[in-house]
Design a binder for these strands. Structure first.
Lengths: 346, 346
DNA sequence: GCTTGGCACTCCGCCCGGCGGAGTGCCAGT
DNA sequence: ACTGGCACTCCGCCGGGCGGAGTGCCAAGC
C-alpha cells in the first residue's frame, strides 16, 4: 500500500478492518453489501467494491472464486494487527476472574495449570503455558534429606518456585553431622546464584571440604549439577482448550494439523518462540516455522522478570481468530502470572 | 441368545466375531458376502444371512437401513469382549519399547507422562493416566526445611513417589534444635503410616510435645493434615493422543463430545472409574456414566499394589475400537508401571 | 475526481431425478 | 440344515437446472 494517506486511503483501511472483523465473526467470505450494512461506513457498496479491488490488488484480501466475497490474506491479518487493531480491554468481570482464580493457586504446578485453563476459557482457543525453564532461575535453597542409612534425597528449590528432587545412593553410612555440614556448604556456594553459575561453583566444592567428606560431596554435587543442567523439563508445557478446536470448520486444514502438533511439546515450544516479556508477539499463518501449520496463528508473550523471563505462554488457533481479544487476554494473564511468581515465593 | 450350544449356534458367534473385527477394521457396515470371503467360514453368504437375521433379532447387531450391511450394537461388543475376544499378545518389539521407555523415567511425574504417551502410541487411541492418589499412599518421610527465620518448608514424601510441599509462616523465630526435635517426633508418628491414619495421629502431637514447642507444632501439624486431606491433586490426570481422534469419521457424535470431555479431568476420572488392579475393565457406550458419551468406550485398569492401588489408567475411544489390542496394551502398561513404582522407590 | 446506481455476468450451492451397486429376505431345491 | 436364485430396497453418485449472492464495469451525478 502506497505512502499517501488521503481520505480514500483511510477508508480502505477501514474496509480492511471491517472485512477482518466480519470474517472472524461469521467465518464466511464477506461481500460489499453486508459490509456497509453492518458497519457504519457512510458510502455505497459500489465504492466499497472499488476499495476491495484495490486491496486485493495489493494482496491484503483474496477472493476464493469469482463472485464470492473476500477473505483476508495473512498479509491482511498482519496489517490488521500492526495498524488497525486496538486491544480489547478486559472487562472488570474478567479481571476479577483472573485474580480470584490465580490467587487460589497453592504451588507452581497449580499456577501453570490454572493459567492455561484460564487462558483457554478467556480466549476460547487452545492455550499453551510453558513451565518455567531451569536455566533462567536462581537457586533459592538446596536441601539434603537422609531417607535411610545409605540413601539421600536432594531437593532443589528455585526462584521460579520450581522444585526438583533427586535420589542419591551413597556407599558409606551417613552421619547426621556430615549431612548438616554438607548442606551448609552447598547452600553457601549455591543459594541465590543463577543456576548455571551455581553448577560451576559446586564443582569446586569437593576439593574444599574436609577430606572425609570428599567422596560424599562428590556424589551429591555430581547429581546436583546433573539436575541443574537437565533440560528435559525445560520442554514441559501445559495445554488446555483443545475442545475449542471443534468450533472451527475446516477440519483437515486447520484442526487436524493443530491437534497433531499439540501432542508434540517440542513443536509447541518452537511455536511459542522467543517472545519478550514486555510485548505480545503475533505470528500469522505462514510466518510460523511449520508449513503444515500455515493455517494457524500464535499469540504469545513471555512471563516472569522482565530482563530474564522464565518462559512463554500464549494461544494458538486458526489464522481466522480474534486477535485483539487474544492479545489482551494473553497480556493480562502473563502479567498476573509474573506478579504471582514474583511475590508468592519471595 | 439361548443356552443351546449346537453347531449352528457356534457359527453364529463366529459370525458376530467376524462382524466386529471387520467393522472395526473398515469402519463400514459389513455384508454377508464380504464376510465369507475375508474369513474362512465354510458356508455360503445365504447361510450367513440367516445367522445375521438371528443375531439382529437378539439385538447383537443392527442394520442402519434396509439393504445395508450390519453393525455391532453395544450389546454385540459386550458379548464380543466377554466371550469372543482373545487378548492380542504384545509383540516382543512392543515389550521392549515399553521397558526401555519407562525405565528411563527419573521421577513420578516422568513415569506418568511417559506411560500416558506410550499407551496412546501403542493403542493409537486417547490414553489417560491418573496420578497416584494421596489417600491410598503411606507416608515415607516428612521433612522440615527452615528457609528464613520465620518461614518453614514442609516436604511430604509418599510411598507412591509423590512429593508435596507447603510453606508455613511462624510467629516466633525458629531454632535449629527445635526444628530437629519436631522433625523427629513428626516422623515417629507418621512415617510408614497410611495417610489417613497419619493425619489422625498427627493431630494429637501438639499436646505431647514440650509446651514451648506447642505453638509451632500446632501450626505445622495443621498445614500437614491439610495437605494430607487435600484431594485437589487426586483429580489430576495426564492425557495423550487426542490427535488419534482425527482418524475417526463421525465428528459430531464420536469426536467432539470426547474432545470436550478430555478437558474435564473430573469427567475423565469418573470414566476411568474404580477398576481393580487385577483385571481390565471395559465399559462400552451407554454402559458408561455419561449419556453424551454414548458413542465412546473405555478400557481401564488400576495400577499399584494389588490390594490397595494408587490409581487407574486406560484408553478411551469410539465404541468401534480394537478391544483385544487395547486391553492387552492397557494391561501391559499397568503392570509395568506398578513394577516401576514398587521397585523404584522402595 | 471521487462516488453512485444500474446492469449484465459469473459461479456456487442446492435440489431433483435417474442410475448402478451392494446387500438383503425369501423361497424352492438339494 | 444349507444353498443358489431372484426380486426388491435403498444408498451414493452424477449431471443438469435454478436461484441467489456477489462482482466488475460503465455512465451519470455531486
Amino acid at each position: 500500500m502506497g505512502e499517501e494517506s488521503s481520505a480514500g486511503h483511510q477508508r480502505r483501511l477501514q474496509v480492511l478492518r471491517a472485512i477482518v472483523e466480519d470474517y472472524v465473526a461469521t467465518e464466511e467470505p464477506v461481500g460489499s453489501k453486508a459490509l456497509v450494512e453492518r458497519h457504519g461506513l457512510g458510502v455505497s457498496p459500489a465504492t466499497v467494491r472499488n476499495d476491495m479491488a484495490a486491496l486485493e490488488e495489493e494482496g491484503y484480501i483474496h477472493q476464493p472464486h469469482t463472485s464470492a466475497g473476500r477473505v483476508p490474506t495473512d498479509k491482511g491479518y498482519r496489517l490488521f494487527v500492526d495498524k488497525l487493531a486496538t486491544l480489547k480491554p478486559m472487562s472488570s468481570a474478567e479481571r476479577r476472574a483472573i485474580s480470584t482464580l490465580l490467587d487460589g493457586a497453592v504451588d507452581l504446578d497449580d499456577v501453570v495449570q490454572r493459567s492455561v485453563r484460564l487462558l483457554s476459557q478467556l480466549t476460547r482457543q487452545v492455550a499453551i503455558v510453558q513451565y518455567p525453564t531451569l536455566s533462567r532461575s536462581t537457586v533459592r535453597h538446596i536441601e539434603l534429606v537422609p531417607l535411610t542409612a545409605t540413601r539421600l534425597m536432594l531437593i532443589l528449590i528455585l526462584s521460579s518456585g520450581r522444585v526438583e528432587q533427586r535420589l542419591v545412593e551413597v556407599d558409606s553410612s551417613l552421619g547426621e553431622a556430615d549431612v548438616s555440614e554438607l548442606r551448609l556448604r552447598i547452600n553457601q556456594h549455591a543459594a541465590g546464584v543463577q543456576i548455571a553459575s551455581a553448577a560451576a561453583a559446586l564443582t569446586e566444592l569437593p576439593d574444599a571440604v574436609r577430606p572425609e567428606l570428599g567422596g560424599l560431596t562428590r556424589e551429591v554435587v555430581s547429581v546436583l549439577t546433573e539436575a541443574m543442567s537437565d533440560h528435559r523439563n525445560d520442554e514441559r508445557v501445559a495445554v488446555s482448550g483443545a475442545a475449542n478446536l471443534a468450533r472451527y470448520g475446516d477440519f483437515d486444514t486447520a484442526v487436524r494439523p493443530l491437534l497433531e502438533a499439540l501432542e508434540e511439546h517440542v513443536v509447541l515450544l518452537k511455536l511459542l518462540g522467543e517472545s519478550g516479556a514486555d510485548a505480545v508477539t503475533v505470528r500469522i499463518g505462514h510466518e510460523g516455522p511449520y508449513s503444515e501449520l500455515a493455517a494457524t496463528s500464535v499469540v504469545a508473550t513471555g512471563y516472569g522478570p522482565l530482563e530474564n523471563h522464565f518462559g512463554s505462554l500464549g494461544v494458538v488457533g486458526p489464522t481466522r481468530m480474534d486477535y485483539p481479544g487474544s492479545m489482551a487476554a494473553v497480556r493480562a494473564v502473563a502479567r498476573y502470572v509474573s506478579r504471582i511468581l514474583d511475590e508468592g515465593h519471595q
